[in-house]
């Protein structure tokens, strides 16, 4: 089968049981996405599929032929960081770092949802779009757990990156 990841097409031969996460980590050497719970509860495996964030542990690789997949490796690299990666560094939005790739990819996907006008559980009036308050960020990022509890700095980093991405957009 073929998978298109970070703009590159890969040919691979996998068991039908292989999750998208395991295909990337174990077959393609893309180990940036982490396996935390493997049950969709922690968000460490978050990837973008056709621009939308998903738990890559809860989907089969064989179901994603033809999709555009983005992992943390596709957002930026050490010489050319994505604004969200930069902001996590600047705000020290992590301690052990294990959840960080998932947090960053999820945050990028989340900002896309906000700019598309999607409401959230924290939105006062779902008929309107939402502005990105700290409360909105916390609700929208609830699918990403951080056992070091770096949440205050993660929220700050997302606010900073959001402002910067708007400037450059």
């Amino acid at each position: 089968m073929k998978l298109k990841i970070n703009g590159t097409e890969h040919e691979l031969d996998v068991d039908t049981r292989t999750s998208l996460l395991d295909a990337c980590r174990d077959h393609l050497g893309l180990t940036g996405s982490k396996k935390g719970c493997d049950h969709g509860q922690c968000g460490a495996c978050t990837m973008l599929v056709n621009g939308r964030r998903i738990n890559s542990c809860l989907t089969l690789a064989v179901m994603h032929e033809g999709d555009e997949i983005t992992t943390i490796e596709g957002l930026g690299d050490p010489g050319n960081l994505h604004p969200m990666q930069e902001a996590f560094l600047h705000h020290d939005g992590f301690q052990c770092g294990y959840c960080t790739p998932g947090q960053i990819v999820s945050a990028v996907g989340m900002l896309g949802e906000v700019s598309d006008g999607w409401p959230s559980h924290a939105t006062a009036d779902v008929k309107d779009g939402a502005s990105l308050s700290q409360g909105e960020i916390r609700e929208r990022m609830s699918g990403n757990l951080c056992r070091c509890s770096a949440y205050p700095n993660i929220v700050d980093a997302i606010e900073t990156a959001s402002a910067k991405m708007k400037e450059t957009a």
């Binding site: 969709g40 968000g43 978050t46 939308r52 964030r53 998903i54 738990n55 809860l58 999820s106 996907g109 989340m110 949802e113 598309d116 006008g117 999607w118 409401p119 959230s120 559980h121 939105t123 779902v126 008929k127 929208r140 990022m141 609830s142 699918g143 990403n144």
Partner: peptide, 26 residues
Amino acid sequence: AEPRIRRDYEVLSRALLAGASGQLRN
């Protein structure tokens, strides 16, 4: 997020947004 659901079936939009996480709802 569908505008007609948000406008005319708010209870459904609210129920959906109360469930799971952003990644799972996608």
